[in-house]
Amino acid sequence: MQVRSRTLDQVKEGDALPELACDVTATTVVLGALASRDWRPMHHDKDFAVERNGVQDIFLNTPNQAAWFERYLTDWTGPKGRLGKIRFRMKASVFPGDRMVFRGTVARVATDDHGCGWADVEVNLSVDERTVTDCTARIALPTGEDDNPWQRHGADWQPDAAPL
């Protein structure tokens, strides 16, 4: 299988990532919760979510949101893109019936002292143009066709070297 990955020289500050939209159903929420072994009832039991959490329906759980962000980022980088760090802050919940929209912008491009190429990306998850979660991610990209961030280990892999 021929697979291509984005290289660092193809990325610059201010670049917009392609938008991703997804219509959320109850199945999306339950599948995401069970795939992340999150058995808490607000992610599968609507009565519990309404009566105990005071919200309108079951809602996406945190680890599944992280998985959505990862998918969004690696759709853009290709398979050699290697996530180094991710930070997110949830401001509201995602419910069945919502149309999630992911948008991203490259905030910084850098090569560290070990030759690893990095892109810092600001990702916004919104529903009806209202921000649900803000995320900042640092992802390693190959610096050329022969580079592969997945081959970095130990001191050569420093996702924390610069503040995110």
Partner: peptide, 10 residues
């Protein structure tokens, strides 16, 4: 299961 839940085709 996780990849399927977010349609991650990596």
């Amino acid at each position: 299961s996780s990849c399927a839940s977010v349609e991650n085709g990596n």
